[in-house]
Amino acid sequence: MKLAIDETRCKGCNLCTKVCPYKIFSEGKRLNRKGIALPELDRPERCANCRLQKLYGRQLCGVCQLTCPDQAIHWIDEEPYELHKVAIEY
């Protein structure tokens, strides 16, 4: 699974940067065509749902998706699925 931000929906409120336990989202710098700075993703493969949804067969964490007021965050399937080596700092 892979984290994706829908550029047509994101309004740049940056709430996702506050709620992700892994601090994957950070405030964006580059403005897009609508004048909105989309959040940037820092090593999104660390996301618990990206790594483990297939394994557990259910949605994990998902706080960013629930919090996103603009329904802009979702996960897309990677084709073909690749295993990532992930280092997680505690």
């Binding site: 047509t8 929906r9 309004k11 740049g12 409120c13 940056n14 709430l15 909105i36 998706q65 629930l66 919090t67 996103c68 007021p69 603009d70 329904q71 802009a72």
Partner: peptide, 23 residues
Amino acid sequence: WYRQDRLPHIFCAGCGNGTIINC
């Protein structure tokens, strides 16, 4: 459950209403 054809919604950037609908 969303009407995908109507998104994005009219709420301002950062408005919490979208979050409550999600929940």
